[in-house]
Design a protein around this nucleic acid. Structure first.
Lengths: 349, 349
DNA sequence: TATTAGCACTCTTGGCTTCTGAGTGCCAAA
DNA sequence: TTTGGCACTCAGAAGCCAAGAGTGCTAATA
């Protein structure tokens, strides 16, 4: 084994040990726990070099080493081995997923809960990105005078709806006329290509007075626009309090404070998703300082993609301390993702 | 002022002081802050008696006194004066409430956020209790073969829907036939009086084969039953970490752990709502040990009722430390409740 | 009887010191 | 390049002490 190889083994050992013990790891305990065929003095030299390379660091002079953000990065990119879950672990996750759920949103919530429970971390699920999916049906139903329900069916059978205000004296027949023309002309159009103008042209031939028409169109438009809004479910925030990493109240405060702004988190996940290079089944991992959200400096994000049909996708993942068992967590996310995909196929098939 | 009266004044002063300072309050500082026309020794005697009565207690021998649960109860029931919010405070809350929201659920979420921000505590909003409200419309819309949307309009214009599975080869016409008969016969019926049998009799006269019919009926039934499910929104859990009352990690852990089970919290609120004696605009206050939820021994619940129309109601309130400014919080809840009621009237009117 | 001054006693809190042990860096030898 | 050895560092635990806030009790007083 070359010296370089050994240094990497040392880094790997440091990460592994630190993740399990949460104690800075020193040369002596490293020798004890792993069977390096060299002395502690040699490891000390290696560690000094790893530190020079910026992969590990000391909390203070006379302490052991902990991985730096770059150290974790190296570990995740090159050293870590992701192994399969055991049958029991798979079984455990499967049990938590309710196979009777028939609506995507509920399914995602359920999966999120399952993920947070099995990892003991914060789980994160983004609702599907629908902007690019197309409108297959659109119905405007009269609820009562002045109030209607816009129901949209999108690609892959996703259903969205919204209650809207309409002119009081619009009759059900008029509404149906509008609804039918809009549906006819928008059918198959991607959501993000629909504009107020598209809508207006679609009803040119109806005989309903413009003043009435306009409000209905505008409300319908907002309903369509709202349909592709991204929601995020965060679950298990309280798990973070159990971790020694957040036993300092201030850290916990700032972490949970930030996580409470789910819009910000959603925005961030969406952001990094755009920068993603690999395929749908790869992982986005963001470590420590790489995360551009206040209060998450000591955290890592791991997210991946689930799919609804061929085109629609969303994200699922976890937020945990930098010091987490990346390998295990990744395989857990992977299995949950697999379950989601499977069940969605089930629903749509 | 009689001796008894003074003792109550002393209790009141102790609660007030303790709420603001979070320090056990002693006889001397009591004299300093309030102008009791007696000496500290007299107050010491009074305090000894209040302690005998179980209204205050000592954390340890040589500390000041803090209110006991019963002390808070006495304070809340008889001593506290609830005063109006200032114009600025009202203004602040009003600003946080988005008046463009048109759907009850969103409105409630928004109000919940507003309440949590202004109180700095955890806000709690229950979705409306719909079990007793009646079904005004019911439509089953075909989404794609095998999949339909059940849309229900309830009293006061509340809309609920659910995607359900239907037999693959059921035609839109058949579905419409079922939908129409069901709607016709259920029209005006309270949700909780609808059973599978009611549904079955409503479609007796259709010519659709039973095998097809049964699945649709069953799914419709589950949709109706699911419509009156109570949800609860908790917001601002992270605020609790800022309070000195939960600076001990263990308390914070167990509190947030329990709050993460929102089903349990919802169940509990529903429970105490049933026991409620006063009118709709009264407050339910539960203090410390009175709360039958693990981890909330140091908390108080304050809830009240908002209304949708004349019959439908739900709860809104906060969860905070026992040591909170009851008077202020109550007036804040009250104002948010007022805003909700007002805006719902707006929507429905 | 209700109130008050005085006093001895209690207990937490915060500051200080000391001690211990794990860990480091470096040097000289193998 | 590796190793044994050694002096040095520093966080954290343990122990100690003094200060301060508060109490209960007693005896005197209105």
């Amino acid at each position: 084994m070359s010296v370089e190889d050994r240094k990497m083994k040392v880094l790997q050992a440091i990460v592994d040990d630190y993740v399990t013990t949460n104690e800075p790891v020193g040369s002596k305990s490293l020798i004890e726990r792993h069977n390096f065929p060299v002395s502690s003095a040699t490891l000390r030299n290696d560690m000094a070099e790893l530190e020079k390379m910026g992969l590990i660091e000391k909390p203070h002079t006379s302490a052991g080493r902990i991985p730096s953000d770059r150290g974790y990065r190296e570990y995740v990119d090159s050293l870590m081995t992701v192994d399969q879950l055991t049958e029991a672990e798979r079984e455990d996750i499967s049990k938590r997923i309710d196979t009777t759920i028939f609506e995507a949103r509920d399914l995602l919530k359920n999966a999120s809960a399952a993920l947070s429970e099995t990892t003991g971390l914060v789980s994160l699920v983004m609702t599907p990105r629908l902007a690019g999916s197309s409108l297959l049906q659109l119905k405007i139903l009269m609820i009562e005078p002045g109030k209607a329900l816009v129901v949209m069916v999108l690609s892959a059978g996703v259903v969205k709806d919204k209650v809207v205000r309409i002119p009081n004296f619009l009759t059900p027949e008029q509404l149906k006329e509008i609804s039918d023309s809009v549906e006819k002309s928008l059918n198959g159009k991607p959501l993000d290509e629909i504009t107020l103008v598209t809508l207006a042209t679609s009803v040119k031939e109806t005989k309903i007075p413009d003043s009435l028409l306009n409000q209905v169109l505008y409300e319908t438009y907002t309903a369509i626009k709202q349909a592709d809004k991204l929601d995020v479910f965060l679950e298990g925030e309280h798990n973070m309090l159990k971790l020694p990493d957040f036993s300092e109240l201030k850290r916990a405060q700032s972490l949970l404070g930030t996580l409470s702004h789910d819009g910000m988190v959603a925005g961030y996940v969406n952001e990094i998703e755009k920068e993603k290079t690999g395929g749908d089944d790869t992982y986005m991992i963001r470590i420590g300082q790489e995360i551009a959200l206040e209060g998450l400096e000591d955290c890592s994000f791991i997210t991946t993609t689930y799919k609804i049909g061929d085109t629609i996708s969303g994200n699922i993942g976890v937020i945990g301390p930098k010091r987490m068992d990346y390998s295990k967590v990744i395989s857990q996310i992977d299995f949950v993702r697999y379950k989601i995909n499977e069940q969605i196929k089930n629903i749509n098939g």
